[in-house]
Simulated assay, not measured.
Amino acid sequence: MSSATAGSSDSGSVPETARVRHGGDGPAPSLAVVEAIADLAGVEPADLLEEEGVVLYDHVDPDALDAVVAGRPDSDVDVSLSVAGYDVTVGPDSAVARQTQS
């Protein structure tokens, strides 16, 4: 699947958050967002549209997100957005996705 790291409040449950590191040898920030959401959804990133109906471009311009966040490990840039039922924060080195609470 992806290089996501999941966090959960109790063992055996669906992860509450997924973190994917970006930059360096990792994916671009926009791809890290896709990988984190796919990890929470339990699908491969390539299957996110078909299985979950999630298209990142419907929520944010991936190129603009990459331009704001990528290559700025020394900065204090955090971008927060909602993507199809997921709250996502993209920082200088990782994307963290969390399912929106109903």
Rank of each mutant, 00 (worst) to 15 (best):
D66I: 08
A84S: 11
E52G: 07
D47Y: 02
S82W: 00
D58Q: 15
G26V: 04
S13A: 15
L48R: 11
A97F: 12
E44I: 00
A36T: 08
S13R: 12
G23Q: 14
G23L: 06
E16Y: 10
T89L: 05
G26N: 01
S2Y: 09
V33A: 06
G7W: 10
A28C: 10
S8F: 11
D93S: 10
A28N: 10
E44W: 09
V34D: 02
A32I: 13
V77I: 14
D61M: 09
G12H: 14
D78T: 15
L48P: 07
A36E: 02
A41Y: 04
E51D: 03
P15G: 09
L40C: 05
S3E: 09
V34A: 01
S8K: 14
P92L: 03
E16F: 14
T5Q: 12
D87A: 15
S30N: 09
I37Q: 02
S80D: 05
A6T: 14
P73D: 13
P62W: 02
A46I: 03
E51F: 03
D87G: 08
V90Y: 02
Y57E: 10
D58A: 04
L31E: 09
H22D: 11
G23Y: 11
T89Y: 00
A18M: 05
G7M: 11
V69H: 01
E52K: 14
V43N: 08
V77F: 06
P92Q: 07
D87H: 13
P15M: 07
V96T: 12
A97I: 11
E44N: 12
E44P: 03
D93V: 07
L81G: 06
D93K: 01
S75A: 15
E52W: 13
V68K: 02
L40V: 00
L48D: 00
G53Y: 08
Q99H: 14
